[in-house]
């Protein structure tokens, strides 16, 4: 992309971009840390993680302010307009992802009691897959690559399958040992949090597609979950 004649315009757009990337990095770390705390059942670390959510929220506000300023000052058009509008939407999605990641950490203490290890490690595995999706979609954003964005989008099908399988396993565990019901209920919520993060990655991939092509992404997941069989 060639540069604007007014270089301060480029600086403003670059700042929006770099702030988004920074925010994405924090979200990725937030999920990673939550998964570590969950896997290790480390409540002290989980407490620490909760405090980091503020940093993500602060960056969202920063991006909001930057985009309003660019719109008011520059009246962006075409690809610039799409970039600025999508920045608002991506920042909003990243903030939600941060909340979901933080929710995982919140539940670590509840999972610590009386819980078999197997379902926990399955969930951590699913979370690591979603973490890779975040990394991929951020790479797509940095490179403004439609192909990478669509690749990231497609990965969500696997996440939904993993979610379904974990859901079934947790139901089975609860049925076999009612003492695990409390812990498993929290794990169900955690799995749901992770699954939602995958959905937000898809949203971001759709925004990248819109920025690069100007079109809405018309795509259907090949793998559709069949909940009626659960």
């Amino acid at each position: 992309m060639s540069e604007h004649i007014v270089s301060s315009y480029d600086e403003q757009l670059d700042l929006i971009n770099s702030t988004l990337i920074k925010m994405g990095g924090l979200v990725e770390t937030q999920l990673h840390n939550s998964l570590v705390a969950l896997g290790d059942k480390d409540t002290a670390f989980a407490e620490e993680i909760l405090r980091d959510d503020n940093k993500i929220d602060a960056l969202e506000k920063e991006i909001d302010a930057l985009t309003y300023k660019v719109i008011a000052m520059r009246q962006p058009l075409a690809n610039d307009l799409r970039t600025v509008l999508s920045a608002l939407s991506i920042a909003n999605d990243l903030e939600r992802m941060g909340d979901h990641a933080t929710n995982i950490a919140k539940r670590v203490a509840n999972v610590k009691i009386n819980m078999p290890d197997t379902p926990v490690s399955e969930i951590v595995n699913m979370g690591e897959n979603v973490q890779r999706m975040i990394k991929n979609v951020l790479d797509a954003f940095v490179q403004k690559s439609d192909t990478l964005a669509i690749n990231a989008w497609d990965l969500d099908g696997d996440i939904d399958e993993l979610y379904l399988s974990i859901y079934r396993d947790l139901l089975k565990t609860m049925a076999e040992d009612p003492d695990t019901i409390t812990g498993c209920s929290h794990l169900l919520s955690i799995a749901k949090n992770i699954e939602r993060i995958g959905d937000y990655v898809q949203n971001i991939a759709e925004d990248i597609h819109f920025i690069t092509t100007g079109q809405a992404l018309e795509r259907k997941s090949e793998k559709r979950i069949k909940w009626e069989k659960v």
Binding site: I5, A78, D80
Partner: peptide
């Protein structure tokens, strides 16, 4: 034209990249 022009030159002009 102003949201998604087909020609790169149009896009460059309306977004203030040359002209």
């Amino acid at each position: 034209i102003f949201s998604n022009p087909s020609d790169q030159r149009t896009q460059d002009y309306i977004t203030g990249r040359f002209g």
